[in-house]
Nucleic acid binder design. Structure first.
Length: 721
RNA sequence: GCGCUCUUAGCUCAGUUGGUUAGAGCGUUCGCCUCACACGCGAAAGGUCAUAGGUUCGAAUCCUAUAGAGCGCACCA
C-alpha cells in the first residue's frame, strides 16, 4: 500500500498537483482524448460553454456553484465516452468593469474619466481586466474545472469582435437595428443609458401634490414630480370622464414657475380616472408613458427641461438647479401662489441604475435599438416570436420548468432593446459617418470617416457566446460538431439578461437554438439567508474555502440538496462536513488497500458478497439516471450516503471478522468485492469530487485507465465486474 | 395590477412518476481514543409534512380556498 495513506488526506497539497497532471495530459481537450484513444472518434459530442465570469475581480461562491454543477455534467459525459467540450472564457462586462476602474481611479487619484481621456482610461481598464483575467483563470483551475484551455475566449478579443460586427451588420441590413430618438433610461451617475433590465426599483417615501397650473386653470392635476411640470405640453384625461369631457381639445397658455408652457387637453384611455384628480399633466420628454400618450395625440416631444447631469434647463428661478432642489422651489412657488390644493404622503417606486445606484432620469436621446416586433426577413416572424418558439415547442427545455412561465411573461412585456451605451469600454458601435453617408459593420478605408462614439451593451456580445466561442463567423469544425450546445447552466437572475438574448441572437444569426437545455441554479446565500455582498462583508471566498477544506469539499457542499432554481444557504460548517467525508473516503481506501494486498478481483463471490455487488449495481443505475435527468443534488447525496453508511459503516465492519478469520474462500471473496466496490465508488464519485478520487485511483491495483478522469463510466448493462 | 415559488425534526433542506413504520446534514443528550478514520464509532431524543376542505383503496406528494414568507415583471401620473 502507498505510504500516502498513512496520513490524513491533505487536499491543499494534493489538488493543485492533480490539476497540473490533468492539464499536462491534455485530456481536457476532446481532440486529445480521441488522439490518445480515451474517446472514440465517432462518439457523439457533448458541449457546454462556460458562462464567462466578468473581469471585474475575483470569483465568488455563485461562480463556484456554477463550476461545480457544470463540471459534474462534463466529467460524467466524458467518462461516458462522449466527445466532451467545455469552453472557457471571460466577459469584458463593459459597464461593470469600467465603473469598477473609474471608482478606483477616483479614489486613488481623484480623477474622472474625462480627466484621463478615452485612450488613457481604456489602457487602465485593459490592465485591470488582464489582471482580473489571470486571477480568475487561476481560480477556475483551483475549483477543478476541466475546461479546454486551448479554446479559451474573451468577449472582447479579435474573433469575438469579428462576430459582433458581422451580427450587427446582418441585423442592420435586415432592418432590425435602427437608430432612433426615444425615451431612454438615463443614469446621471454613470453618464450612460441603460436597458430596462438594468433598472432596480426602490420603494421610497414621496409626496403626491395636487395643484393647478394657474389660478383660473380649470383642471387640477396630481404629481410626485412637480419640477417636471415646467416641461408639460398637455393634460390627458379618460375619454369617459364626465368631469373633463368639455375641456378635451382646448388649449391653454400659462406661465408656470417663470416658464411659459402651452397645454393641450387630450383624451386617452391610458389614464386612470380614479387616481389623483383623474387628469395627468403630460411631460413627454421625461416620462415614457407621457411620451407614448403624446405620440398618440401628436403633441410635441421637444420640450426638454432636464439635462444629462440631472439639472434644470429652463429660464427663471429653476435654471441650473438640481432636480431635488427644483422640486422644493416649485412646491414653494405653488404655496406662495396659492395653487397647491393637497399634499399627501405616498410610497413611490424609484428607478435606480443597478450598477451605480443613480436615480434614473428618463430622457429623449438618439440611440441604437433592436426592434423586437418587426418581422425578420425570410423567417416570417418577429424576434420576440423567435425567442418564444423554441421554448414553447420544447426544443429548449428550462430546468426547473416553472421558469418557462416566467420567461414567457417577460417576453410578452418586452420592448425594443436599447443597445448603445455612452461608456468607453466595450465594442465600439461598428458604424462610421461621413457627412450624410453611413457605413455599417466594416471600417471604411478612406479618410474622413468618424466612428460612432458609443459602445454596445455588453449583452450584445455575450448573446453570441455559444457560437462566437466556436469560431463563428468562420464555418469551423467546432461549430459543426459542438453547436447547438447541450447545456447552458447559469443563475436564474440572468435568465432575461443573457439566456433570452442568446436565444434571440442565435435564432437570428444561425436560425437555430443555442442550447438544448437550460439549467438554472439559485443564489448562494450566507448561513442567515442573506445575499453575499461586499458591503455586508458576509462573503465566503471559494478559494479560501478550497485552501482550508479542499475544492472537493466545497463542490459537494454546493451540490448536495441544492435543487435547481432554489436559493441555498452555505456555511463553513456544511463545507467542513464534506471535508470530513473526504477524509472518510481516504480511510475507506486505506482500509481496503491494506486488506486486499495481493488479492485477485477474479475470485468467486460468496452469495452474500454477490448480493452486495448487485446492490452497488442498482445504485449505479440510480445515480446514472439522476445525473442524466439533472438531479445531481440527489445523485451526490446518494453516493455520499452509500460510501459512509453502507460501505464504511456496514460492509467494512462486517469485513473485519472475515479478514481475521480462517475461511480462505470468504476472505478472497470479500477482498475481491471490496476492490470492486472501491473502484466503483471512485468512478461514481469522480464527477463530484474529482481530486481525491483521482488521487486514490492512482494507487489502485485495479485501475484500467491512466487517469480516472477518462476511465469508463460503469454502464448498468456491463455489470459490476 | 399580472405572474411564479415556498411553508416537512431546534436550524438548513431533500423527498425524482401519489404506495409499506416521512429522510439527510448540522445541532442536542448519553457512552466510547474499539488495531481504516476522534476529520471518528455506538446509541437516543425530536415531526398532527402551514390551516380547512376535496379527489383517491391510499396524499407531504394531485385539486380548491385561506393565512404567512419570498421572488419576477409592469407601474399610478
Amino acid at each position: 500500500m502507498d505510504e500516502k495513506f498513512l496520513k490524513p488526506y491533505d487536499p491543499a497539497a494534493t489538488e493543485s498537483r492533480i490539476y497540473k497532471e490533468w492539464e499536462k495530459s491534455g485530456l481536457f481537450n476532446p481532440d486529445e482524448c480521441v488522439k490518445q484513444g480515451a474517446t472514440e472518434a465517432t462518439a457523439p459530442a457533448y458541449s457546454i460553454v462556460l458562462p464567462p465570469p466578468n473581469v471585474t475581480g475575483r470569483l465568488h461562491m455563485g461562480h463556484a456553484l456554477m463550476l461545480a454543477i457544470e463540471d459534474v455534467f462534463i466529467r460524467f459525459k466524458r467518462m461516458r465516452g462522449f466527445r466532451t467540450l467545455w469552453v472557457p472564457g471571460t466577459d469584458h462586462a463593459a459597464i461593470a468593469t469600467q465603473s469598477v476602474v473609474e471608482k478606483q481611479i477616483k479614489k486613488e487619484e481623484d480623477k474622472s474619466r474625462h480627466d484621463l481621456g478615452r485612450e488613457e482610461l481604456l489602457k487602465r481598464i485593459e490592465t485591470f481586466a488582464a489582471e482580473s483575467h489571470d486571477t480568475i483563470v487561476g481560480q477556475l483551475k483551483t475549483m477543478g474545472a476541466s475546461l479546454d484551455w486551448s479554446r479559451e475566449a474573451f468577449t472582447l478579443d479579435e474573433t469575438r469582435t469579428r462576430a459582433v460586427r458581422a451580427v450587427f451588420k446582418q441585423m442592420y441590413d435586415a432592418g432590425l437595428i435602427y437608430r432612433g430618438l426615444r425615451i431612454v433610461n438615463w443614469d446621471p451617475k454613470g453618464q450612460t443609458t441603460i436597458s430596462d433590465d438594468e433598472i432596480v426599483y426602490e420603494e421610497r417615501a414621496g409626496k403626491l401634490y395636487t395643484f393647478r397650473y394657474a389660478k383660473d386653470f380649470p383642471i387640477p392635476i396630481a404629481t410626485t414630480r412637480p419640477e417636471t411640470k415646467v416641461g408639460d405640453v398637455g393634460i390627458a384625461v379618460h375619454p369617459d370622464d364626465v368631469r373633463y369631457q368639455s375641456f378635451v381639445g382646448k388649449e391653454y397658455d400659462v406661465v408656470f414657475c417663470d416658464v411659459p408652457i402651452h397645454i393641450t387637453v387630450v383624451a386617452d384611455t391610458a389614464v386612470d380616472p380614479a387616481f389623483g384628480t383623474g387628469a395627468v399633466g403630460l411631460t413627454p420628454a421625461h416620462s415614457q408613458t407621457d411620451w407614448d400618450i403624446a405620440d398618440r395625440h401628436e403633441l410635441s416631444h421637444e420640450v426638454i427641461v432636464i439635462n444629462e447631469i440631472a439639472k434644470m434647463t429652463v429660464p427663471g428661478r429653476l435654471n441650473g438647479k438640481k432636480v431635488a432642489e427644483a422640486r422644493e422651489l416649485v412646491v414653494q412657488w405653488l404655496k406662495d401662489e396659492g395653487l397647491l390644493e393637497k399634499e399627501e404622503d405616498t410610497v413611490q417606486n424609484i428607478a435606480t441604475a443597478e450598477r451605480t445606484g443613480g436615480v434614473v432620469e428618463p430622457l429623449p436621446k438618439l440611440q441604437w435599438w433592436v426592434d423586437v416586433n418587426k418581422e425578420v426577413p425570410g423567417r416570417g416572424k418577429t424576434l420576440k416570436e423567435l425567442m418564444l418558439e423554441p421554448v414553447r415547442s420544447g426544443a429548449i427545455k428550462i430546468i426547473p420548468e416553472h421558469f418557462e412561465k416566467t420567461y414567457f411573461h417577460w417576453i410578452e412585456n418586452l420592448r425594443d432593446w436599447c443597445i448603445s451605451r455612452q461608456i468607453w469600454y466595450g465594442h465600439r458601435i461598428p458604424v462610421w459617418y461621413r457627412d450624410e453617408e453611413v457605413q455599417i459593420g466594416i471600417e471604411p478605408k478612406e479618410s474622413g470617416w468618424v466612428q460612432d462614439e458609443d459602445t454596445l451593451d455588453t449583452w450584445f456580445s455575450s448573446g453570441l457566446w455559444t457560437f462566437s466561442t466556436l469560431g463563428w463567423p468562420e464555418q469551423t469544425d467546432d461549430l459543426t460538431t459542438y453547436h447547438p450546445t447541450d447545456l447552458l447552466e447559469t443563475g436564474y437572475e440572468i435568465l432575461f439578461f443573457w439566456v433570452a438574448r442568446m436565444i434571440l441572437m442565435t435564432e437570428f444569426t444561425l436560425g437555430t437554438i443555442p442550447f438544448k437545455t437550460v439549467y438554472l441554479h439559485g443564489t448562494v446565500r450566507d448561513a442567515k439567508g442573506r445575499k453575499m455582498s461586499k458591503s455586508l462583508g458576509n462573503g465566503i471566498d471559494p478559494i479560501d474555502i478550497a485552501a482550508r477544506f479542499g475544492a472537493d469539499a466545497a463542490r459537494m457542499a454546493l451540490i448536495v440538496g441544492n435543487t435547481p432554481g432554489t436559493d441555498m444557504r452555505i456555511s463553513e460548517e456544511k463545507i467542513k462536513g464534506y471535508k470530513h467525508f473526504a477524509n472518510k473516503l481516504w480511510n475507506v481506501a486505506r482500509f481496503i488497500l491494506e486488506n486486499t494486498q495481493g488479492a485477485s478481483i477474479e475470485a468467486s463471490l460468496t452469495p452474500k458478497d454477490a448480493q452486495l455487488a448487485a446492490d452497488v449495481e442498482a445504485l449505479t443505475k440510480e445515480i446514472t439516471d439522476d445525473i442524466e435527468n439533472y438531479r445531481v443534488y440527489l445523485a451526490a447525496e446518494k453516493i455520499y450516503h452509500y460510501v459512509w453508511h453502507e460501505l464504511a459503516d456496514k460492509i467494512l465492519e462486517e469485513s473485519k471478522p472475515i479478514f481475521a478469520g480462517t475461511d480462505g474462500g470468504a476472505t478472497q471473496s470479500r477482498a475481491a468485492l471490496l476492490l470492486l466496490l472501491l473502484t466503483r465508488i471512485l468512478k461514481l464519485l469522480h464527477p463530484f469530487m474529482p481530486f481525491i478520487t483521482e488521487e486514490i485511483w492512482q494507487s489502485m491495483p485495479t485501475k484500467d485507465s491512466a487517469f480516472l478522469m477518462v476511465a469508463r463510466w460503469p454502464e448498468s448493462a456491463a455489470g459490476v465486474r
